[in-house]
Simulated scan of single mutants.
Amino acid sequence: MTDELTVVRAGFAPIKGTRHLAHDRVMLDAQGPVGDRGFALVSVDPEDPARGRVLRTVQNPLLVAVRAEVTGDRLEVELPGGETVSAEPAATGERITCDYWGRDVELELVDGPHAELFSSWLDRPVRLARARRGDVVFAGPVSLVTTASLHDLARHVDRDAVDPARFRPTLVVETDEPYAEDTWLGREIRVGEATLRIGVPIPRCAVIDIRPETGERDVRLLKTLATHRPLNRAGEPAFGVFAEVVVPGAVGG
C-alpha cells in the first residue's frame, strides 16, 4: 500500500546555489524536479581553460540571496538590491570539464549578461554553464523534509519557525511526529500525481546556517542539529531524506 502525504511546499533553483524558490506546481520525472539546477556557475582554471570547478554554495554563501527564474527561453537573475538581467543564454559550443565534489562533470558554457552580474556580485570571475539533468545534483534526485521536524528544530533554536528554504528541499510534507521520516527507508509515498521511494537521510553542512534573503550566516542550525541528530562518519547531522521517483507526475506546493 502506498501512503499519500500532503505537500505544503515544492521548489527548486534553476541555477545551482541560488535562492531556493517555492513553485505552485513542480513536475517530477525520473531525474527529479524538471528545471532544477539546469545551470551552474563555474570558475575556469586560468592555466587550463578546458577545466574548471563548479561553485560550491558553502564556499560562496552570497549565491543563496540571488533569485533566478526561467520563463520560456529567458533566464532572469535578480540581486537583493533589485538589479536584474533577463536574457536567453546563448550557446557557445564550448564545453568544459568541471570538478563537482570530487567527480568530473561536462558542462556547456553559455554567453549572456548573467556571468557579468554574478562576477560583480561574488567579486570573482565566473562563467555560466548549462548542465545536463542530474549532473550537479548531490546524491538523490529528490529531497524531502517534514513540517514536524522543522517545528522541532525551531523549538531547539527558540524561534517561531525555520525557513524550509535553508534546507533547499524539493518537497516539504506535512507530518505530526518529528523525524518520523527516519523510519521511512524503502517506503513508497504518493505526493500529488507522483510516487516516491524514500531513501537515506540527508547529511547537512553549513549552508543551512545561511539566511536565504541575504546570504549571511545568522543562526547556528548545524551545531544545534549535531546535539540531537544522528551523525555520519564526517560528523554531519541528518535532516530530511532523499527519494527517487517511481511514478512521474506533477506536485503542487
Rank of each mutant, 00 (worst) to 15 (best):
R53Y: 11
V77H: 01
A161N: 11
E108H: 14
L122T: 03
P237N: 13
V241D: 08
R37N: 08
P237Y: 08
R132L: 13
E213T: 09
R51D: 12
A65E: 00
D123E: 14
V34G: 03
L117Y: 02
P169R: 04
E4R: 13
I202S: 06
P113K: 06
I96R: 04
D111L: 06
D111H: 07
P201R: 11
R130M: 07
G38K: 02
R166V: 09
V137W: 11
L28S: 03
A65M: 00
V66A: 01
G235F: 02
A165R: 15
D29E: 11
R53N: 09
R124G: 02
E94T: 13
D182G: 12
R168G: 06
E236V: 05
L150W: 07
E216K: 13
T227P: 10
L171T: 06
A30W: 10
G81K: 00
R211L: 14
T170L: 05
G253P: 09
I210C: 09
D163R: 12
T57L: 15
V200T: 14
E4Y: 01
R204D: 01
V142M: 03
T175C: 08
P113V: 04
T71I: 10
H114S: 02
A139P: 00
D48E: 12
K223N: 14
E116R: 10
A238R: 12
D24N: 14
D218S: 14
L109I: 14
R51Y: 15
R19Y: 09
V246D: 04
V241L: 02
T92C: 02
I208R: 01
R53Q: 12
G72W: 11
A148T: 03
G253F: 12
T195V: 15
L171M: 04
T175P: 05
R74S: 12
D45K: 02
P169V: 07
L231P: 03
V136I: 14
A226Y: 08
E193L: 02
A87C: 03
A161Q: 13
V145G: 02
R37S: 05
A30F: 10
R133Q: 15
E76T: 14
T2W: 03
A131V: 08
D24V: 03
D45S: 10
G192T: 03
W121T: 00
V200R: 15
V105C: 05
T183Y: 13
E116K: 04
L28A: 01
T6S: 15
D158Q: 14
E94Y: 11
L196K: 05
G249I: 03
V85H: 00
V105K: 06
L122D: 02
T84R: 12
R211F: 10
T97I: 13
P33W: 12
P230D: 06
T84I: 02
A91Y: 07
T195C: 01
D176L: 12
W101N: 13
A115K: 00
V54T: 07
G140Q: 14
Q59G: 06
R19T: 09
A129S: 10
Y179M: 12
V136A: 06
R103H: 15
C98I: 05
T146M: 04
V54N: 04
